[in-house]
């Protein structure tokens, strides 16, 4: 799942190396509009709908946090 997440992130912002970052938000790699595009791509890829109340920057600050929110929302 983590590889899929990195792949989607890289498609979204190809100018960054997401595998080397510890905090995508702090390091300015994702803004709120990127998160909207990311959620849309993740929903489509994993066949889920991430709950609106989970769409908080801290849940998308690392691949591990994204994996956690995906699993919470039923991704397998």
């Amino acid at each position: 799942m983590k590889q899929e997440i990195i792949k989607i992130l890289t498609e979204l912002r190809p100018e960054f190396d997401f595998s080397q970052s510890t905090d995508f938000i702090e390091e300015g790699m994702l803004d709120s509009f990127d998160i909207v595009a990311l959620v849309t791509a993740l929903d489509e890829k994993f066949g889920i709908s991430i709950d609106g109340t989970d769409i908080l920057p801290e849940n998308f600050s690392s691949a591990e946090n994204i994996e956690t929110v995906l699993r919470k929302n039923g991704a397998k």
């Binding site: 909207v36 959620v39 849309t40 709908s49 991430i50 709950d51 609106g52 109340t53 769409i55």
Partner: peptide, 10 residues
């Protein structure tokens, strides 16, 4: 659209 679709799903 994004906000409405998320509301409907929720």
């Amino acid at each position: 659209k994004f906000m409405l679709n998320k509301l409907a799903d929720k």
